[in-house]
Simulated assay, not measured.
Amino acid sequence: MERLKDKVIIVTGSTSGIGIGIAKLCAKEAATVVITGRNVERGQKVVDEITAEGGKAWFHAFDLTNTDSMHSLITDVAEKFGRIDVLINNAAGMGMKDGRVDELSLEEFNAVVATDLGGTFNMIKEALPILMKNEKGGNIINIGSMASVAGDLGTIAYACAKAGVDKLTEYVACMYGPSGIRCNCVRPGLIVTPQNEARIPDALKDIFLSNILGKRYGNPEDIGHLCVYLASDEAEYMNGQVLTCDGGLNSHTPTVAQFRQMASRTW
Rank of each mutant, 00 (worst) to 15 (best):
M1S: 14
M1Q: 08
V11C: 11
V11R: 07
S14W: 05
S16C: 13
G17A: 07
I18N: 03
K24W: 01
K24Q: 15
L25H: 00
E29S: 13
A30G: 01
N39E: 03
E41C: 00
W58V: 14
F62E: 10
S69V: 12
H71I: 09
G82E: 04
R83S: 10
I88E: 05
A92V: 13
M94P: 07
D102C: 13
E107Q: 14
F109G: 14
A111C: 07
D116P: 13
G118V: 12
G118R: 13
T120F: 03
F121D: 05
A127Q: 05
L128M: 13
N134W: 05
N142V: 14
S145E: 12
S145R: 04
A150W: 03
D152E: 12
A159H: 10
A159C: 08
K162S: 07
A163F: 02
T169R: 06
Y171P: 00
A173S: 12
Y176A: 11
G177V: 10
P178T: 07
S179Q: 15
C183V: 05
R187V: 01
P188M: 05
I191L: 03
V192E: 11
K205V: 01
S210R: 06
Y217R: 01
N219D: 08
Y237Q: 12
M238V: 15
G240S: 08
Q241K: 00
Q241A: 09
V242R: 02
D246A: 00
S251I: 02
A257G: 04
A257Q: 00
